[in-house]
Simulated scan of single mutants.
Amino acid sequence: TVLRAWAQGAAPRGPVALVDPAAEEPVRVRAGAVVIRDGAVLLIRFTDEGDGPHYEIPGGGVEAGETLEEAALRELGEETGLAGTVGPELARVWKDGRHEHYFLVSATGEVGPPETLDNYGGTPVWVPVERLPATPLWPRRLSWRIEHWHRTGWPGRPAELADSITELGPPCGW
């Protein structure tokens, strides 16, 4: 709230509540797989009528009895047909009671035929990593970080991010 107000040229009005999104009981836990091959990252492309495309990192809800890593690999298989090995956790994203965990995954195989994939009408696509900062990707705050980490080295511990699914336009407006 404070950063957004300052970036828009004003001070925040009134007191700003301190909210720790990581301390909230999650309404949903999601695990995602960041897969990079030959300088491109694998994303799921969705086309919205009128708004143009937006992209998501392959992933989905963690099922009962499943670890975050198991969920990331299961969802990667369901949405793209790829198998893989989970590497380090890159980021944790908190938004509206959702807790999302993103892992670097080394994937094998090829993207499966569309009729075999379960990705809610999206299409797996490879996007050059250098284009991520200008790509309407959820989570937005993670898009430019992936590009940066790919060039400079992966983080030693996960980034902790609060994000807005409604602010996908490049570049970030605040």
Rank of each mutant, 00 (worst) to 15 (best):
His101Tyr: 15
Gly61Thr: 07
Arg145Cys: 03
Val111Trp: 07
Arg140Pro: 10
Lys95Leu: 12
Gly60Ser: 06
Val105Ala: 01
Ser106Val: 04
Pro114Lys: 11
Leu18Lys: 04
Thr116Gly: 02
Ser143Tyr: 06
Val86Leu: 01
Glu79Gly: 03
Leu43Phe: 10
Val27Arg: 03
Leu3Lys: 12
Gly112Arg: 03
Pro114Cys: 10
Thr116Met: 02
Val105Lys: 02
Ile36His: 06
Pro113Tyr: 07
Leu161Ile: 00
Leu168Gly: 15
His99Phe: 02
Val19Phe: 06
Gly59Gln: 04
Ala64Trp: 14
Ile146His: 02
Thr116Pro: 00
Gln8Tyr: 01
Pro114Ala: 13
Gly81Cys: 08
Ala33Phe: 00
Tyr55Val: 03
Arg145Gly: 01
Ala10Ser: 12
Gly65Arg: 04
Asp96Ile: 02
Gly81Pro: 10
Leu168Tyr: 12
Asp163Glu: 08
Glu78Leu: 15
Ser106His: 11
Glu147Tyr: 04
Ala162Pro: 09
Val27His: 02
Gly122Phe: 11
Thr116Trp: 03
Gly9Asn: 06
Pro88Gly: 14
Asp163Arg: 01
Thr123Cys: 08
Glu63Pro: 02
Leu90Val: 15
Pro15Asn: 12
Tyr55Arg: 05
Ala162Gly: 15
Ala83Thr: 14
His150Trp: 13
Ala91Met: 04
Tyr120Asn: 13
Arg28Lys: 15
Trp174Ile: 00
Thr152Phe: 09
Trp94Tyr: 15
His148Gly: 07
Glu115Ser: 08
Tyr55Lys: 05
Arg45Ser: 10
Val41Phe: 01
Trp154Ser: 14
Ala83Phe: 07
Gly169Leu: 12
Arg74His: 04
Trp149Lys: 09
Gly97Leu: 12
Leu90Cys: 09
Val62Trp: 02
Trp126Thr: 00
His101Thr: 08
Trp94Arg: 15
Gly39His: 10
Val62Thr: 02
Tyr55His: 11
Ile165Gln: 11
Val2Pro: 08
Ala5Met: 10
Pro158Glu: 13
His99Ala: 05
Arg13Phe: 06
Thr67Lys: 08
Glu147Asp: 15
Asp48Gln: 11
Pro21Phe: 00
Leu76Phe: 01
Arg98Cys: 07
Gly50Gln: 03
Leu18Glu: 14
Gly122Tyr: 11
Glu75Ser: 09
Glu89Ile: 02
Thr108Gln: 15
Val35Asn: 06
Thr108Trp: 04
Glu100Gly: 14
Asp20Gln: 07
Ala134Gln: 15
Arg28Met: 10
Phe103Leu: 05
Gly14Pro: 09
His99Arg: 06
Ala23Pro: 01
Pro58Ala: 08
Ile165His: 13
Leu73Lys: 11
Val27Asp: 03
Pro155Thr: 11
Gly121Leu: 04
Leu68Gly: 01
Pro133Trp: 03
Gly32Pro: 07
Ala134Tyr: 14
Gly109His: 04
Leu104Ala: 15
Trp126Ser: 03
Gly97Arg: 08
Ala33Trp: 01
Glu78Arg: 15
Thr123Arg: 14
Arg74Ser: 09
Thr116Glu: 12
Cys172Val: 04
Gly9Cys: 04
Arg4Gln: 13
Arg145Val: 07
Trp94Cys: 07
His99Lys: 05
Val2His: 12
Gly65Asp: 11
Arg45Cys: 07
Ala71Thr: 09
Glu25Phe: 01
Asn119Pro: 04
Glu78Pro: 02
Asp96Trp: 12
Arg4Asn: 10
